[in-house]
C-alpha cells in the first residue's frame, strides 16, 4: 500500500535525470568580497555595517566599562530578561546587577523592557549577530523586550556568513544540529508594509545595542 510519500518520491525519481542545465560549480564566491582582513579591519567593517542597520554601537574599553554601559542603558528598570549570565561572558556583571537591585530572569517576562544576551558570532560583512539556542540561552531574551543589548567580545567578529558556515563544518555537523535553532540578526526589527514607510520595532526589538568590549582579557 503506497503512501503519499512513496507516490511523490516515485514521481520525482521517474522524471530523473532532469534536463535542467547544471554547470559544475567552481568554488563558492562569498556574497560580500571582503578580502583578507585583520581583526581590526573586521571590527571596523562590522561597526560600519551595523550602524547602517540602525544598531546603536558602544565601544567600552574594558570589561568594567562595558558593565557601566549596560547599566546605563538599563537605567531605572529593575527587571531584565537575559541569558544565563555565565553565557554572556562579562565577569562582574552578575555582581553589578545584584548591587543595583536589578533582577535578571530567563522566563518570558512580558513586562521586561530590556533583554541582554551575548552572541555566538558576529558577521562583519553584513553587521549581523549570530545567536544559537541552548540551555541557559533563552530565545525570548533577544526577542520579547523592545530593547536588546548584545555583548560582543572582539574575537567573536568573523568575516561573513560563508566563514560562519565553514566554521560549522569544522566543528562537525552534529554540533550545529545539536542546537535547536540559530538566528542571524541584522539590525532591529522592521517593516515597510504600510505604504513602503520604514518602521523599526515591528514584532522584535526596535532598539538594538551592540556593546563591543575593547581590550578585554576574559576567556573567549
Amino acid at each position: 500500500m503506497s503512501t503519499s510519500r512513496d507516490r511523490i518520491l516515485d514521481r520525482l525519481r521517474a522524471a530523473q535525470p532532469l534536463a535542467v542545465a547544471v554547470k559544475p560549480s567552481n568554488g563558492h564566491l562569498p556574497m560580500v568580497p571582503l578580502g583578507g582582513q585583520s581583526p581590526a579591519g573586521l571590527r571596523a567593517q562590522f561597526i560600519e555595517q551595523a550602524e547602517k542597520l540602525a544598531c546603536i554601537i558602544h565601544q567600552p574599553a574594558a570589561g568594567t566599562d562595558a558593565i557601566q554601559t549596560v547599566l546605563g542603558i538599563i537605567g531605572a528598570d529593575r527587571l531584565i530578561l537575559s541569558w544565563g549570565l555565565e553565557h554572556i561572558g562579562l565577569p562582574g556583571f552578575a555582581e553589578a546587577l545584584a548591587t543595583s537591585g536589578i533582577r535578571a530572569t530567563q522566563a518570558r517576562e512580558a513586562s521586561a523592557r530590556i533583554g541582554v544576551t551575548g552572541v555566538d558570532a558576529c558577521l562583519a560583512a553584513t553587521g549581523s549577530l549570530v545567536i544559537a539556542t541552548g540551555v541557559g540561552k533563552p530565545r525570548v531574551a533577544s526577542l520579547l523586550p523592545p530593547v536588546h543589548i548584545a555583548i560582543v567580545r572582539p574575537g567573536q567578529i568573523i568575516a561573513d556568513f560563508e566563514t560562519w558556515v565553514a566554521l560549522q563544518h569544522r566543528n562537525g555537523p552534529d554540533d550545529f544540529r545539536a542546537q535547536a535553532s540559530q538566528v542571524v540578526i541584522s539590525g532591529p526589527s522592521r517593516t515597510a508594509d504600510i505604504a513602503m514607510q520604514l518602521i523599526l520595532g515591528m514584532h522584535g526589538p526596535g532598539e538594538l545595542h551592540l556593546v563591543i568590549v575593547g581590550a578585554y582579557r576574559g576567556n573567549i
Binding site: R108, V135, V140, F176, R177, Q182, V184, S186, P188, S189
Partner: peptide
Amino acid sequence: VYTHMYNGPRRSGETD
C-alpha cells in the same frame, strides 16, 4: 533582519 535556521524542537533543559 531575522534569518532563522531550525533543526528541531527545543532541547532538554531549554525554556523556550
